[in-house]
Nucleic acid binder design. Structure first.
Lengths: 148, 148
DNA sequence: ATAATGTATTTTGGAAATCAAATTATTTGA
DNA sequence: TCAAATAATTTGATTTCCAAAATACATTAT
């Protein structure tokens, strides 16, 4: 019963932090040389990633998008010069998504931003405390996996 | 240098957890009696909240929406019967947003879902560990405030 | 008191984001 | 080989969103 208020406080913090981070990312992007992108498009670029050359459907799954939405997103990113489609030679139904040079530059910049954020997240923590944070995150991952 | 890999792991966990939670909320909603709502509309209802009778612009600010987008969202929620607009009698420029009975039922259900999630988030933690989690969240809140 | 300025919301026009369902191209299994 | 399965695209619709202009009301300065 007493926990309820604590839960609400943590709830509010989680919501505020999440929407705040999105907002910051969006506005950092608008001020940057990549102002032609939206935050969703940037996250799609992050999901496509630099090394894996994943299939369109693998990326769609990561982002929880339907195939049609994935196609539209890849279209826009291709038109804007961040992504390249490559037909798989073994199985010609498959399209693999690659980042262009421009896409890779953005990818690294976005990762750097996230790293800075995580550094602040963990600021001033001992190893012991970091273990606790990991445990909390693992709890949430379990929650997500169980309900998926 | 060595921290970089840890950061990436926490990064990935954060991204996975947030997009996973969104997905779960979306799909719980679709299976419920509130299937006429999207996740964005539900979060707007959460932001409007039960007791405050906030102005449209206060809600817009909370959700980081432009005034126009707020109007469109309130339109849809009003049409669907979750929200009521009330002109302020003192200052007739102002519109206050109220939840209808139906809106309040959903609000409580959504809060309950979040509480369950937070409970799992904190599962099996000692008081000491909870303090650490709070500290991590406070760090992130500071990050958000600093960059806003 | 009234004109200018400021504030809250709505409207308009357009792009991006999304889904469900139908379609196309290709592969695989019987 | 041919039916079923799979990967991606297309189509048609709604939602989400923003910028800028318009509207309506309130406040301030003259």
């Amino acid at each position: 019963m007493n926990e309820s208020r604590d839960y609400q406080a943590i709830n509010q913090a989680l919501i505020k932090v999440y929407s705040g981070i999105m907002w910051i990312e969006e506005h950092e992007l608008r001020k940057s040389t990549f102002a032609d992108l939206t935050i969703k498009e940037m996250h799609a670029i992050d999901a496509i990633s630099m090394y894996d050359h994943q299939t369109a459907s693998a990326v769609a799954k990561k982002l929880h998008l339907t195939p049609g939405t994935m196609t539209a997103t890849a279209d826009r990113l291709t038109k804007k010069g961040y992504v390249k489609r490559v037909r798989d030679e073994q199985d010609r139904r498959i399209v693999r998504l690659y980042l262009t040079k421009k896409g890779r530059v953005l990818y690294r910049a976005h990762r750097a931003f996230h790293n800075m954020m995580v550094a602040q997240f963990l600021d001033g923590m001992t190893d012991e405390e970091m273990k606790t944070v990991r445990k909390a995150l693992r709890n949430l991952e379990n929650f997500v996996d169980e309900h998926a």
